[in-house]
Computed example of a mutant assay.
Amino acid sequence: MTRNLYSVKKPEASPAGKAAAYHHGDLRAALIQAATAILKERGIDGFSLREAARRAGVSPAAPQHHFGDARGLLTAVATEGFRLLGEALARADSAAADRDGRIRGQGRAYVAFALDHPAEFDTMWRCARIDTSNAAYGAAAGQAFGLLRAAVAGIPFEGGQVPTASDPKAIACWSLVHGLARLALDGALGPGEAARGAIDAMLEPVLDCLTV
């Protein structure tokens, strides 16, 4: 058989190339997952885009296609955090029978989310490190706050609402549960499970303040 002189052997894909092909279609999600793991281990000050790319198995330049820079990837982590928080608040809201139940349920869900997702929760509020003008971030954050605002007002929440004005009562409720969650995460209520025990003991008295 005559060999085709113009045929060439295709070079084998590099490990990074193989990883990129593997992640084709889900690279964005893989990078968010990698970034979240770094944030959980090292905090936002220990985060780097290069390390996120390494953990996702792609080249250092690959994240730029989806996020542009580290700020973009951190914004995506924060957006995902607000999406998950909104889902948790919505579940609590739908399970309640009245206004007080909605506020209490959302308060419990808020604190539980913070304790179960500390990396996302911390990143969601680091406004100097994320792009708060990002449309997806704004929609996810607005959805979460809209659920609380509707519960405090005692009105149904319409999906997709984005509140345009602050509500003092809603801000007060938010501040109480956020402060409790932050105290627990910062170690002010004791280490690990001790913090959860302290929250269990004081959560109901705190929620009593939200329903007055």
Rank of each mutant, 00 (worst) to 15 (best):
L84C: 11
A56C: 14
A35G: 14
L39K: 06
A76P: 15
F121E: 02
G81I: 03
L89E: 03
A95E: 10
D122Q: 11
Q33A: 15
R104D: 02
R99T: 08
V152G: 01
F47E: 08
A53Y: 02
R149C: 08
R55T: 15
D116E: 14
G146N: 07
G68A: 06
F47D: 05
C127D: 15
P60Y: 03
I38G: 03
T79I: 06
A150W: 02
A20C: 00
Y137T: 06
L148K: 03
D93Q: 12
A30G: 09
G138L: 12
D131W: 04
V152S: 02
R55P: 15
A153D: 06
A114H: 03
L74A: 11
D98N: 12
R50L: 11
R104A: 01
R42G: 10
F145E: 06
A136M: 09
I103D: 02
D122G: 13
E51M: 15
F121Q: 01
A20F: 11
R54F: 10
T36I: 12
M124I: 12
F113L: 03
F121Y: 14
T36A: 10
I44K: 04
A139G: 13
A90V: 06
S59M: 05
A35Q: 07
F67L: 10
L115S: 00
R42T: 14
K40I: 09
A144S: 15
I103F: 00
D45I: 06
A29K: 13
D93A: 08
G101R: 02
A96E: 05
E120G: 12
I155W: 00
E87R: 11
P63A: 06
F121C: 01
A139Q: 13
D116L: 01
R129F: 15
P63G: 07
D131N: 14
A56E: 07
A20G: 00
E41W: 09
A90M: 07
F145P: 05
R83L: 05
F67S: 05
A70M: 12
S94I: 00
Q106A: 02
L74E: 05
Y110G: 05
H23Y: 10
S133M: 13
A56N: 13
T79L: 04
A144G: 12
A76H: 01
A62W: 01
A128K: 14
V77P: 11
A109H: 01
R28L: 10
A19M: 09
G43I: 08
R108A: 06
A56K: 09
G107M: 00
L115G: 01
A119G: 08
H24Y: 07
A109G: 04
G154V: 05
H23D: 00
S133N: 14
Y137C: 08
A139N: 08
R50C: 11
R149I: 06
L84I: 13
V152C: 08
R54P: 14
G17S: 01
P118L: 08
F113N: 03
